[in-house]
Simulated scan of single mutants.
Amino acid sequence: MSRPLLSTPRSSKHRAPHPNRGYRPYAVAGGLLALLLVVSAAGRAWLGPAQVISDDRRVQVDYPRLVRSGAEQTLHISVRGEPGKAVKLLLIGPLLSQSRVERISPEPQSSLRQGNALLLHFPSEATMERSVEVTLRSDAVGQLNGTLRAGPGSVVRLSTYRHP
């Protein structure tokens, strides 16, 4: 009796290697790389630049959420007010108490800092919109939160993470 041409070997030492066995580490590494890309994209979206707007839409703040410890962080604040009325901004919280104010532009008419609060008073303008930049620097590490108020209904909450 003759043996069939395509017979299966009877001993394990004659078996052909599994075709996918050599590629399994590459498949796992590729999957981990894809997962890392998805997580980093999601983290970039959360930790990237933030824009917060008050409920009454009078105050808008643009700021970076992720900042290196010791680096400057600039808050770009836009306030819509009434023509001819002064603008008062109150910044409260650890974001301010654990930071140094490097500069405020434009220069406020008056400012008062007490503990973890900073009150800025700007003179009235003919326009309804006032833009202010507050630059902070902190050596703290971790999450810092703060609140910016420009009136009873104009409140925004700020949250930033400082890494070493």
Rank of each mutant, 00 (worst) to 15 (best):
G70C: 03
S69V: 00
V87P: 04
E102Y: 03
Q73S: 05
V101E: 08
G84V: 05
I77S: 07
I92N: 07
E107G: 10
A86G: 11
E72Q: 10
E107S: 12
P108T: 05
Q109T: 09
V87S: 07
Q109P: 01
E102K: 03
S78K: 15
P94L: 09
G70N: 01
S105E: 15
E107V: 10
P83Y: 04
A86K: 11
I77Q: 06
S78A: 15
L95Q: 02
V87Q: 03
Q98W: 13
L75C: 03
K85Q: 15
A71L: 07
S78I: 13
E102Q: 08
A71K: 06
S97P: 00
L89E: 09
G84C: 10
E107K: 12
L96E: 06
I104K: 11
V87N: 03
L91P: 04
K85L: 13
L89F: 02
P106T: 10
S105D: 15
Q109R: 10
S97I: 06
S69D: 02
L95Y: 09
S78L: 15
H76L: 14
E107Y: 04
L91F: 11
L91I: 14
E102L: 05
V79P: 10
P108M: 04
G81W: 01
E102H: 05
R80T: 14
P108S: 00
P83T: 08
I92T: 15
G93R: 04
S97H: 12
A71F: 05
I92C: 07
I104N: 11
A86T: 06
Q73I: 05
P106Y: 01
L90A: 11
L91E: 11
P83N: 13
G70P: 01
L89Y: 02
K88G: 15
V101A: 09
I77L: 11
K85E: 15
V87A: 04
S69N: 02
Q73C: 05
S78E: 15
I104M: 11
P83M: 12
Q98E: 14
S97A: 12
G93L: 03
V79Y: 02
I77F: 02
G81M: 10
G84F: 05
L75Q: 04
I92R: 05
S110C: 05
E107C: 07
K85I: 14
P108I: 04
I104S: 09
V79K: 02
P94C: 08
E82F: 02
A86P: 11
L90V: 15
S97T: 08
P83S: 13
L75M: 02
L75W: 08
I104H: 07
T74S: 07
G81P: 13
L75T: 03
Q109D: 09
V79C: 09
K88V: 15
A86N: 10
P106W: 01
E107D: 08
E102W: 04
S78C: 13
K88P: 14
E72T: 05
T74P: 03
Q98S: 12
L90N: 06
S110I: 06
S105K: 14
I77A: 08
L96P: 00
E72A: 10
T74D: 06
R80F: 12
K85A: 15
L96T: 08
G84R: 03
P94Q: 13
E102G: 02
I92P: 02
E107R: 14
K85P: 09
S110H: 01
S78H: 12
E102P: 00
P108Q: 03
R80G: 13
Q109A: 10
V79R: 05
L89D: 08
S97N: 06
L75A: 03
H76V: 14
